[in-house]
Measured scan of single mutants.
Amino acid sequence: GTEDLKEEAKKALKKGDKERAKRALKKAGLSEDQIKKFIKEVL
């Protein structure tokens, strides 16, 4: 589900894998702006 994808994105970001995080967030249905915001909040 969406929460799982967001968790996956957080883990990817902590490993420095932004591309993987972006893919997971796109799958979760987030827009580009939401993805940028999510990444900023996590990092």
Score class of each variant (00 low, 15 high):
residue 42 V to W: 15
residue 36 K to I: 14
residue 8 E to P: 01
residue 1 G to P: 11
residue 28 A to L: 13
residue 29 G to R: 02
residue 31 S to L: 04
residue 15 K to Y: 10
residue 34 Q to T: 03
residue 9 A to E: 00
residue 2 T to V: 15
residue 14 K to H: 11
residue 20 R to P: 02
residue 35 I to W: 02
residue 19 E to I: 08
residue 36 K to G: 08
residue 28 A to T: 03
residue 13 L to Q: 01
residue 8 E to K: 07
residue 1 G to E: 13
residue 2 T to G: 10
residue 39 I to R: 00
residue 38 F to L: 07
residue 28 A to V: 04
residue 5 L to R: 03
residue 25 L to W: 00
residue 19 E to S: 08
residue 32 E to A: 08
residue 43 L to R: 05
residue 28 A to M: 10
residue 4 D to L: 12
residue 27 K to M: 12
residue 43 L to N: 05
residue 34 Q to R: 03
residue 11 K to C: 12
residue 19 E to R: 07
residue 6 K to R: 11
residue 39 I to Y: 05
residue 31 S to E: 05
residue 40 K to Y: 15
residue 17 D to Q: 08
residue 22 K to D: 06
residue 16 G to H: 05
residue 8 E to G: 03
residue 14 K to R: 13
residue 9 A to W: 03
residue 22 K to I: 15
residue 24 A to P: 00
residue 9 A to I: 07
residue 39 I to K: 00
residue 17 D to V: 02
residue 4 D to N: 10
residue 26 K to H: 10
residue 39 I to L: 09
residue 37 K to M: 10
residue 42 V to E: 08
residue 26 K to S: 10
residue 39 I to M: 09
residue 42 V to S: 07
residue 15 K to G: 11
residue 7 E to F: 07
residue 32 E to L: 07
residue 22 K to V: 15
residue 11 K to D: 12
residue 21 A to S: 02
residue 26 K to T: 11
residue 6 K to G: 03
residue 4 D to F: 11
residue 16 G to V: 01
residue 10 K to V: 12
residue 16 G to P: 01
residue 30 L to E: 01
residue 29 G to T: 00
residue 41 E to K: 09
residue 38 F to T: 04
residue 38 F to P: 02
residue 14 K to Y: 11
residue 35 I to H: 01
residue 24 A to G: 02
residue 28 A to C: 05
residue 22 K to F: 09
residue 23 R to V: 13
residue 37 K to W: 06
residue 38 F to G: 02
residue 34 Q to K: 04
residue 36 K to N: 14
residue 30 L to P: 00
residue 27 K to V: 07
residue 15 K to E: 15
residue 43 L to K: 04
residue 21 A to R: 00
residue 24 A to Q: 08
residue 42 V to Y: 15
residue 12 A to V: 02
residue 29 G to D: 02
residue 5 L to G: 05
residue 10 K to Y: 08
residue 37 K to E: 15
residue 36 K to Y: 09
residue 32 E to H: 07
